[in-house]
Every structure is written in C-alpha cells, then in structure tokens.
Write a protein that binds this DNA or RNA. Structure first.
Length: 465
RNA sequence: GGCGGCAUAGCCAAAUUGGUAAGGCAGUGGCUUGCAAAGCCAUGUACUCCCGGUUCGAGUCCGGGUGCCGCCUCCA
C-alpha cells in the first residue's frame, strides 16, 4: 500500500515520497489574526490536522509550520479605526485562535512564526531577488516582476495573457503603480495611512507585502525545498503562485513537491456571509450549545477536496454518530470473561481504514471501515462471544485510529453525583419489587435532570443525556 | 468576460480511478426489554442534475446544457 496525494501542481494523484526518508516538512498557510476565525477557516485547519496526524500515524516525523499574519492591510485599517496598537490586536486574536484550535482538538504545529518577527528574513529574501534582477522599485515600494519568471501560473493553470485581458475591463489601472497590473508588492513603502506600522530597513521605511512572509518563513524553517504545502483553494492564486515565484527565483530550487488544497465550506448550501446570517465563528456555535466534537466530525468527515456543506442537520447527525461510538466504548468496557479476541476483525478494520486514508485522505471511507467494525463487534457482543481480551483489543484499536481522527474519544468523564446514584439504586429496587410505576417515575426525573439510564444484563448504565 | 471545481437516496457522504452504486443520520417493520434506551436483523426501484456521444460495459471518459461554488481585487 502506498500513500497517495492529489497534487495541485500536476492535477494527479501521486505516490508520496518525501525528500528525506521518514521525514516530512509541512507548511500550511495560517490565519490573519485580525478577528476571530470562522468555521470555514477551520475547515482548512482541520484538513491539515488530519493530514499531519495521518502522516504521523504512517510513521513520518512531521515538522509542521503554520504562519501567523500579523501585519497586513486589514490589520492596519483596524489600528487606524480603533487607535489600538497592532500588537494588542494580534495578541488578542492569536490567543483566541489557539484556544479555538484546542477546542476542536487540532494539534499544535511545531512553530507558528509571525510575520513581524521575521522582517529581517523577508528583507534578505527581497534583496536576493533584487540582486537577481526580479524586482523593480516604484515610489519606494518594491515589486516582483512577473515577466522574469516564465513558469508563473503553473500551479493555478492561469494563462497570464488571458488574465490580463480579463482584468483590464474591471481594474482601474490608475490605481496600480506597477509596470504590469499583475506584478505584486514585495515591500510597501510607508505612507500616512500606515500610522505607526512600519519598519526602517535597508529597503527603506515600510512593511513587507503579504506573499513574501510565507516564502521567507517556510524556507527558514523547512529549507529551500520541502515536501508539502497546504492552504485553501482561494490561496492557490495568487498567493501560492507568488510564493513559488519568489522562492524559486531566490533559491534556484524547486520550492515544494506536493501542493494540497482544501475546498471551501458552505453553510446550508450557501456561501457563508454575514448578510445571509449564516456566518459562524467557532464561538457562535459553542454558544448554541453545540458539541465541539460534532463540529470536528462535520469538518473532518467530508473529503478535503469536496465542498463541505455545513448544516445543523449535519451537526445533529454527527452527534448521533459520536454517541454510537461512545456507547460502543461503554459496552466494550463492560465485557467480562473469556471469548473471541477479535484480532482478525481489528486487523481488517485497520487495513480498510488505512487503504482509504492512503488514497488521498479518504476520511469518509475510513470512517465507514470503523462503522462496519462496530456493527460486527456489536453483533458478537449481543451473542456473548466477546471476551475481555477482545474488548481490550477493540478499544485499543479505536484509541489508535483516534490518533488520526480525533473523534473516537470516550465520553467526557463526568463523575455521577451521589444523589443521582442513590436515585438509580432506588429505581433498581423498585424494579426488583416490580413497582414499575415508581421505577419509571424515577427514570423520568433523572431524564429531566439530564441523565440517561440504560438497563443492561450487568445492571443500570448511567450516562449524560 | 477569462480560468477552475462541484452536482450521488429525506439529510450528510464514499466509490480501488470504466466493470455494474460504501458508510452515517433520519424513517419504517421485527427481535430484545416490565416499558424504554442501547444493540441486532430487515427495509429505500438512488432513471448517480439534464441531453447527446465513445465503449461489450460510464457515477466514473468526451461534447453540449442547467445549477451552485471558487479564483481573476492581500478571504481557508
């Protein structure tokens, strides 16, 4: 079995072969920390999390770098409008971002380099590009000359000639100081609208363009050539295209071997927008009392290259799926005695799981393998054929696969209060006395209090509603 | 206007890449249960958006159409 990814560069699924055996350098475009991230942002970060987790599951030592964009037009505008210093804003939203990652069970990258902490690297990269003749200056700003990089457009398959035609009708060329409307800024000269946001460097007083940060930081942490670069499809052009141009012109080497792009998320079939009222940050959803794991499930269960239709129906279905898995775990924990060890069933499940994931991270297929396993094992539990060893093996399998999916965890452990246990006990006594009216009354009261009782051959099982 | 992606049962969503449609949720019937819950079994004729075409055979390939989405303006 071989791990294969769909490479945007070639538009084909390719067998994955890292530059250095057993090691993977992974760079994923991170957030601009000027606001709370929305659920669509997290779709991409979730995909990258699953990718990283599966690479690790496959035995690769992954170095995962995600940038934080902490200087950029929108941020500067916010500074201007609120009078708040840049750092204060970015610190607040960086903190919120990390908290959200934790809520969703997204593993932390190895480093989150911030643009403002890598001005030196960017300046140095721009200087290299200037020395090699890829730049020109206009009114103190430095631009990348696209015509100096003939391969431009290879990733997004954009035809530059048509791009120009397409743009000419809509773009007021007077707004551009560039020789060619497609050229992009590497360094932006300071003007009064930038306020306090500027750096005095060899390139003058100003700030870096957006694209240069990813080139500078990815190469700093992962080398001039590395394995995988991810992002949302919207970053493909021009951002990733520009990164390739900057990086390859500067280093003379192939920048990235595998480009993986995540499709967008729509809400209830519609593009997420504030005017439609279907714009959600993670916090908005938590306020509605939605289980973060259900959100994780919905974000992760659709193939990353497929548009993900996020809906409240889907969240509810995800909740039920989570319950099924949690109930399965509770059931296994109660199995006692001798019986089947489930070695074959476990192996079959894991193989099917890996076959699906190896095929460009087919999570739906991988989850299907797990559900088939659960149904098979449940059947055997019903028949009393499973032994403690089998139950242990099945639970261990779920734990192992959970390192990839992150949605197979047991129910949150919550101590059942004494008074609830007392009620359960009272109900058991009533049942023994065949006073079902009383038993049902107690059960109703417990349900109202948020506790579910399930009678099993081993006694009553209590869990949170 | 240019380029690209997507369209599978009530909902979500796969299909080893041309070989005769996974899985989950919801629903229905049954077993089990004091009744439930959980679990198991059974159950959907899916004209795979529409119209053509290639092929022994197409959800999968080609052409046309419709709809949705993205990029072309520093939004994952």
């Amino acid at each position: 079995m071989a791990l294969r990814f769909y490479n945007t560069l070639t538009r084909k699924k390719e067998e994955f072969a890292p530059i250095v055996a057993d090691k993977v350098g992974l760079y994923t475009c991170g957030p601009t920390i000027y606001n709370f991230a929305h659920i669509g942002n997290f779709r991409a970060y979730m995909f990258e999390d699953i990718l990283r987790r599966y690479l690790e599951f496959r035995g690769y030592a992954v170095t995962h770098i995600m940038n934080l964009t902490d200087v950029e037009d929108k941020l500067i505008r916010t500074c201007r409008e609120t009078g708040e210093p840049l750092k204060a804003i970015t610190a607040r939203y960086a903190e919120a971002f990390f908290a959200d990652l934790d809520t969703l069970g997204i593993k932390r990258a190895d480093a989150y380099p911030a643009a403002t902490e890598h001005i030196e690297e960017m300046v140095s990269l721009i200087k290299t590009l200037r020395e090699k003749g890829h730049t020109y200056e206009e009114e103190g700003s430095i631009y990348f000359r696209l015509s100096s990089f003939p391969r431009y457009g290879k990733l997004s398959h954009m035809d530059m000639a048509q791009l120009r035609d397409g743009a000419s009708g809509r773009v007021d060329s007077d707004e551009y100081e560039t020789e060619d409307a497609r050229d992009f800024a590497l360094w932006k000269a300071w003007d009064e609208t930038d306020g306090e946001v500027y750096w005095e460097t060899e390139l003058g007083k100003g700030r870096p363009g957006w694209h240069i940060e990813c080139s500078a930081m990815s190469m700093k942490y992962l080398g001039a050539s590395f394995d995988i670069h991810c992002g949302g499809v919207d970053n493909m052009f021009p951002h990733h295209e520009n990164e390739i141009a900057q990086s390859e012109c500067a280093s003379g080497q192939k920048f990235v071997n595998y480009w993986l792009h995540c499709a967008h998320l729509v809400v209830e079939g519609k593009k997420m927008s504030k005017s439609l009222g279907n714009f959600y940050t993670l916090r908005d959803l938590l306020e509605k009392g939605i289980d973060p794991m259900a959100i994780r499930w919905v974000l992760a269960a659709t193939h990353y290259r497929q548009p993900n239709n996020f809906s409240f129906d889907a969240l509810e279905a995800a909740n039920q799926s989570l319950n099924r898995i949690r109930d399965f775990r509770l059931r296994l924990a109660e199995v006692k005695g001798e019986g089947a060890a489930l070695e074959e069933a476990c192996k079959k499940c894991e193989d099917a799981f890996m076959t699906a994931m190896d095929d460009d991270l087919n999570m739906s297929g991988a989850l299907a393998a797990v559900f088939e396993f659960i149904r098979e094992v449940n059947k055997e539990v019903d028949a009393g054929q499973i032994g403690e060893a089998g139950a242990r093996n099945a639970l261990a399998l779920l734990d192992r696969l959970n390192t990839v999916t992150g949605v197979f965890s047991p129910t949150m452990e919550e101590a059942v209060p004494e008074e609830i246990l007392a009620q359960v006990q009272a109900r058991q006594e009533a049942r023994r006395a065949r006073d079902f009216a009383k038993a049902d009354a107690i059960r109703d009261a417990l349900t109202a209090a948020g506790w579910v009782i399930e009678d099993t051959s081993e006694g009553a099982r209590v869990k949170r509603l």
